[in-house]
Amino acid sequence: MIETEAALLLRDFVNTLDVEVAADEIATPGRLADWLAGRGLVPAGTTAAAGDLARAVTLREGLRAAMLGHHGPAPAELPAGLAEALAALPLRVVLTGERPALAPLATGAGAGLARIAAAIVDSAADGSWPRLKVCQEGTCAWAFLDTSKNRSRTWCSMRVCGNRTKTRAYRARQKT
């Protein structure tokens, strides 16, 4: 199954920033805490601090950069921002149930962010990580899950972003 819980969480987290209209769902510590609680990553009523918000933004933009890299050959290293964010979110291995899992060492909003970091490992394990991509339309940068058979999808939506890109290319050809 391609659309796993981990992959969808990562996609949704990256999409907390709508680049096209500059709308940020986690623009404040309170909104970050609400977003994390809304996805069951932290208990309701958890608070977040400015440092949590800074870590969340670094994690989100690092994930966006990594997903943008999924359009080409696998990069040798994680994007710098993502490596930095992951280093600040300590996890531990727990042996419960059928397979080992990663659990956060932090509490509060940091625990929610660590659960997002753990979703990267889960996504890699289930094969959905390389299918998480960012739209290559310059004004969009929306994260999506490439469910195409040959993993060649470029845009979040052919109707919108694909059409914009192709229309611009057509107009540029007509000018010359």
Rank of each mutant, 00 (worst) to 15 (best):
6 A>K: 04
73 P>H: 11
59 L>G: 09
137 E>Y: 11
17 L>M: 08
173 R>N: 13
134 V>I: 14
139 T>R: 15
62 G>K: 14
133 K>H: 07
120 I>Q: 12
150 N>V: 13
79 P>M: 05
134 V>P: 05
24 D>N: 15
152 S>Y: 10
58 T>Q: 15
28 T>C: 10
18 D>G: 06
126 D>V: 04
131 R>V: 08
137 E>G: 08
37 A>T: 02
5 E>N: 13
71 H>N: 06
74 A>C: 10
120 I>T: 11
86 L>M: 12
62 G>C: 10
17 L>K: 09
150 N>A: 15
9 L>H: 06
95 L>P: 03
92 R>W: 00
145 L>V: 09
63 L>D: 02
59 L>S: 08
55 R>L: 13
24 D>I: 12
110 G>C: 03
126 D>R: 06
42 V>H: 00
89 L>A: 03
5 E>G: 10
66 A>S: 07
27 A>I: 12
98 E>S: 08
25 E>C: 06
155 W>N: 09
117 A>W: 00
43 P>G: 11
91 L>A: 00
137 E>P: 13
173 R>P: 13
110 G>Y: 05
66 A>D: 03
43 P>E: 12
128 S>Y: 02
114 A>T: 04
137 E>C: 12
19 V>G: 01
87 A>W: 10
62 G>E: 10
120 I>E: 07
125 A>N: 10
2 I>M: 14
90 P>L: 02
71 H>T: 09
165 T>E: 13
151 R>D: 10
45 G>V: 09
149 K>I: 11
169 A>Q: 14
55 R>C: 09
44 A>G: 07
52 D>H: 12
51 G>A: 14
31 R>A: 15
156 C>Q: 02
20 E>H: 15
152 S>Q: 15
144 F>V: 02
169 A>W: 03
11 R>E: 11
23 A>M: 12
8 L>V: 13
134 V>D: 01
33 A>K: 07
56 A>V: 13
154 T>C: 04
143 A>T: 02
15 N>H: 09
84 E>W: 08
115 R>M: 01
42 V>F: 04
64 R>E: 06
37 A>L: 01
135 C>V: 03
64 R>G: 07
33 A>D: 06
8 L>H: 07
162 G>S: 08
44 A>V: 08
47 T>F: 06
169 A>E: 14
98 E>Q: 09
114 A>R: 03
37 A>V: 01
